[in-house]
Design a protein around this nucleic acid. Structure first.
Lengths: 229, 229
DNA sequence: TTTTAATTAATAGTATTACTATCATAAATA
DNA sequence: TATTTATGATAGTAATACTATTAATTAAAA
């Protein structure tokens, strides 16, 4: 039996569901590759259309604009991550071990998941590190939030927040700490690869140092509060 | 005696120094206002030119493009912040008090500084919270870093990193913690105003809660390590 | 003072982007 | 067979991000 992972994405993010058709899946696959390669600013629907031997108008039939495509990909990533976190923490009783697993998963490079043929999770992770912030750092963020475009981000923060509370029920800022773990994992990763002077990570063992930095940050904070009560 | 604050900005960021002429200062002042108002994506040199009753080509004589203007403003902000941190921590001997002051300064809204007439620091701070990441989240980041465009960010991380080391000389990640303080201050501020479900900050006392969250995060981490030695 | 050189302003123009609209055709379905 | 649905092909538009040209003004040199 092959177990197929399927994400539920907010319908306001697309015009036609790209997972339903061959062309749609091609759009997803190649947009991940091209945004990763060109950066979001230089990526255009025209270039994408040429790459997949379709037309600009063809792409517009799936996505209203490239910003919605970016939010779509971010949603996809967070939904996939939430699923993965639930999977790897399943049956782990110890609250500290569970949180450790989550931090490691977030801070280390992602490997491609064979279960989804049309999205390369490893590429998508690199893309997210560099581009995901742009999905909400806009003037339309409040409007987009009202349309629940960031729900997958909220879901993963709630999940990690619950893990934090399970470890220490008196900790006062579980959701802020959860969003902090995610964001710090992303931009420290970006800095160490691109502006390394903003970090303390040496060329070797970068990822394990990032895991140590983040783990230290999170656990000392939660544990301290638990002691204080 | 009037004490005038003057920033030294990397010459590669502008074509003509905007601080030297009336038109240049108008460009700075109104670009802060307009980027804050429209967001970076919808801000154009044409709109700016109309606002200041000059021409598009006139603006292009000062800045090559709007991305360099954004890096200029980010540099200006970090240089100004570094100056301010040195000012308010001057004569404070206690290492913990000093770090506390820095965290409060970063996490609270900035008030306009009368010393610089053409830039409203309060507006600039809002702009930085929403837009600063876009100055480095690009495909040109490594190239830009080689040109030392992010030096003011490095300087402030080194300064805060030194404060961290003064408090605990054995802490292993002073620069990563410094950049984390800055980034967390920014995006938690953005989240609490725009996607509040990603934080735990109530409508009231938001800023003081953010200060508490950040202080707790930073000090528990540094102090724990000091105990462990 | 006059001429010349340099700077700045104003206007036009171009390639690209981010779309929208229309019509044709092929494939799937009722 | 009729008809819905998906894709393709082509064209068109307003705005963006610039560049280039020429005109006007100012400053420096003869």
């Amino acid at each position: 039996m092959v177990f197929q992972f399927k994400v539920q994405i907010n319908e306001g993010l697309f015009i036609r569901n790209p997972e339903d058709t061959e062309l749609g899946r091609k759009i997803l696959k190649h947009s991940v590759q091209m945004i990763h390669q060109l950066g979001f600013e230089d990526f255009t629907f025209k270039k994408l259309a040429e790459e997949i031997h379709s037309t600009e108008a063809g792409v517009y039939r799936y996505f209203e604009n490239k910003h919605k495509l970016l939010i779509y990909l971010t949603s996809w990533y967070f939904s996939w991550l939430t699923f993965h976190i639930k999977f790897i923490t399943n049956n782990i009783e110890n609250n500290k071990d569970r949180l450790s697993k989550v931090i490691s998963l977030l801070a280390k490079p992602i490997e491609d998941d064979e279960q989804t043929s049309y999205i390369d999770e490893s590429l998508l992770h690199s893309l997210i590190v560099a581009e995901a912030s742009k999905s909400y750092l806009t003037k339309q963020v409040v409007e987009n939030n009202k349309q629940h475009f960031f729900k997958p981000y909220q879901d993963i923060c709630n999940l990690i927040g619950d893990f934090i509370l399970a470890y220490n029920p008196t900790y006062k800022y579980p959701k802020s700490l959860a969003s902090t773990i995610i964001e710090v994992a992303h931009f420290q990763n970006f800095f160490m690869h691109n502006i390394s002077s903003l970090t303390d990570f040496s060329k070797k063992k970068q990822e394990s140092q990032l895991v140590e930095f983040l783990s230290d940050l999170v656990f000392s904070s939660i544990e301290q509060r638990r002691d204080k009560g």
